[in-house]
C-alpha cells in the first residue's frame, strides 16, 4: 500500500505525459463536423454553368462532395485523385465551387480537367456556412438519402483515399447492402 502511494505520482505523471504526448501529434485542423449523420442542408442554387440545382439533383447513391475553388492551391494537389475516381467511375463526385467566380472556375476546369458530375456555385459562401465549411478543400461522403456520413478537411490525396476513404466507403456500402 505504502509502495503504491509512493509510486502514484510517477504513475499519474506517466499517464498524463502519455496523453499530452499523443495530443501533440493530433491534427488540430481535424475537427468533428456537426453535420455528420445529418441531412445535407437544403439549397437552391445554380451550377457554375448556370443550371438551377437543388437537393433533388444530387446522385441517388453514395457520392463525394468536394469543396473547391480556382484560387485554392491544395485543390490542385488532390485534383489527380478526383480525376482518377471520376475516370474509373469509382464514386460520383459533386463539386461545390466555394467563394469563387464562375468564369475563373470554368477556366480552371478547362485547364486541369473536370472530375465533377456538376459543380454547385456558392460564390457568397453562404451554403458553405450551412455545411460548416472552413475553407477549400474539404470532402464529404454523402449517402443515397442525402445524409452526410463523413468529412475530411484539407487535401484528399491517394494516401488519404486508401487509408480513410476506402474503409469508410466500404463500411457505408456494406451497411446499405445489409439494409436492403
Amino acid at each position: 500500500m505504502n509502495r503504491l502511494t509512493f509510486f502514484l505520482p510517477v504513475v499519474v505523471f506517466v499517464a498524463l505525459a502519455g496523453l499530452l504526448w499523443r495530443g501533440l501529434y493530433l491534427n488540430p485542423r481535424e475537427l468533428p463536423s456537426m453535420l455528420i449523420d445529418k441531412p445535407m442542408p437544403a439549397f437552391s442554387l445554380s451550377t457554375i454553368d448556370g443550371q438551377p440545382v437543388s437537393n433533388a439533383d444530387l446522385p441517388e447513391s453514395l457520392f463525394l462532395l468536394n469543396v473547391w475553388g480556382s484560387y485554392c492551391l491544395p485543390c490542385l494537389v488532390e485534383h489527380p485523385t478526383l480525376m482518377r475516381l471520376a475516370e474509373e467511375g469509382e464514386i460520383p463526385v459533386v463539386g461545390i465551387n466555394y467563394k469563387d467566380r464562375e468564369e475563373l472556375a470554368l477556366d480552371w476546369l478547362q485547364t486541369n480537367g473536370n472530375p465533377f458530375a456538376f459543380s454547385i456555385s456558392d460564390n457568397s459562401g453562404r451554403f458553405g456556412i450551412d455545411l460548416g465549411v472552413y475553407g477549400a478543400p474539404e470532402t464529404y461522403i454523402v449517402d443515397k438519402d442525402g445524409v452526410i456520413r463523413y468529412r475530411h478537411v484539407s487535401v484528399l490525396d491517394e494516401t488519404v483515399w486508401q487509408e480513410d476513404f476506402l474503409p469508410a466507403i466500404a463500411e457505408l456500402r456494406a451497411e446499405s447492402g445489409a439494409a436492403q
Partner: peptide, 23 residues
C-alpha cells in the same frame, strides 16, 4: 474563426470569417 483557429472572427481576414461576420 474556424479557418485560422487562433483568432476571433473580428480579428481575422480569412474568407469564412468575413462571411460569418456578414451573417
Amino acid at each position: 474563426c474556424p479557418m485560422c483557429q487562433n483568432t476571433n472572427l473580428s480579428g481575422s481576414t480569412g474568407g469564412v470569417a468575413e462571411d460569418l461576420r456578414r451573417e
